[in-house]
């Protein structure tokens, strides 16, 4: 009938400021070292934007920050944290200790409580007392020090594996023995690599490459084992003091 015309319902249009760039990060604290790793794939939906986009960044000789979620916010957040660390260095003539960096990150994130940085941060490094530390954050600044944490697309795949292998959950030690409180560096590195290869198998947003940062405490013997590893690069200039190393590995590209 000519009188009836179809009238469409109004559709509200809007700009979505966030997007998910995939990827996964992981950090494990040892007795006198800390390992912070992340894959290098950056994706959006089914598309791979790049096979090499670093997600793990060195802040100081003692602290490494991994950021995962919305890459634009992640990269900007790292720049802002680095700027605050530089101001601190000028004001106090020393590097910020890692637990202070952790608290700083909380305040920076909560300041944007009503338009958050869409990032899951994991801060790893060496505490003032020389022990390995891992701090994990949510997008608005809730944080906690832990022995290990996985975040990102494959968190649900990796975290339960780590619960079993790092915390020995659901395992009872052989009678007369007990599980070690801390694992040696070589074991931790193997666990990190296995976690990422497993995640790459079963999650499409994980793959291409793996970058592992190792922060070693002053006077630690763990560093010796590292030199024998293939493709290790030292980022710190001197032998005395804390040391930061990078290990890169390939991951499946499919």
């Amino acid at each position: 009938m000519p009188d009836m015309v179809s009238i469409a319902q109004p559709i509200q249009q809007s700009f979505n400021p966030y997007t998910e760039n995939g990827g996964t990060i992981l950090a494990i604290a040892g007795a006198d070292f800390s390992v912070i790793a992340g894959d290098t794939r950056q994706s959006e939906g089914y598309n791979i934007q790049t096979r090499y986009a670093p997600k793990v960044f060195r802040l100081t000789d003692k602290a490494v920050l991994a950021v995962n979620g919305f890459a634009a916010d992640g990269n900007m957040f790292v720049k802002k944290v680095r700027q605050r660390l530089e101001w601190y260095r000028h004001a106090h003539a020393k590097d910020m200790p890692i637990r202070a960096i952790a608290r700083l990150i909380q305040t920076m994130l909560y300041a944007r409580r009503f338009f958050p940085y869409y990032v899951y941060n994991i801060l790893g490094g060496i505490e003032e007392d020389g022990t390995g530390a891992v701090y994990s954050f949510d997008p608005v600044g809730s944080y906690e020090r832990e022995a290990c944490r996985a975040a990102g697309a494959a968190q649900s795949l990796v975290q339960p594996f780590l619960d079993n292998q790092i915390y020995f959950k659901n395992q009872t030690p052989a009678p007369g023995t007990s599980f070690p409180a801390h694992l040696p560096l070589q074991t931790v590195l193997s666990l990190v690599i296995d976690s990422f290869t497993s995640a790459t198998e079963r999650h499409i947003e994980v793959g291409d490459g793996l970058e592992i940062y190792v922060v070693v405490a002053k006077g630690s013997t763990s560093a010796q084992g590292l030199q024998n590893l293939r493709g290790v690069q030292e980022l710190t200039a001197t032998d005395d003091g804390e040391r930061v190393f990078v290990v890169r590995r390939e991951l499946k590209k499919d």
Binding site: S156, L157, Q159, S198, R202
Partner: peptide, 9 residues
């Protein structure tokens, strides 16, 4: 998803 992760490992 958790089962995939641990089983794969």
């Amino acid at each position: 998803t958790k089962l995939y992760g641990v089983a794969e490992g």
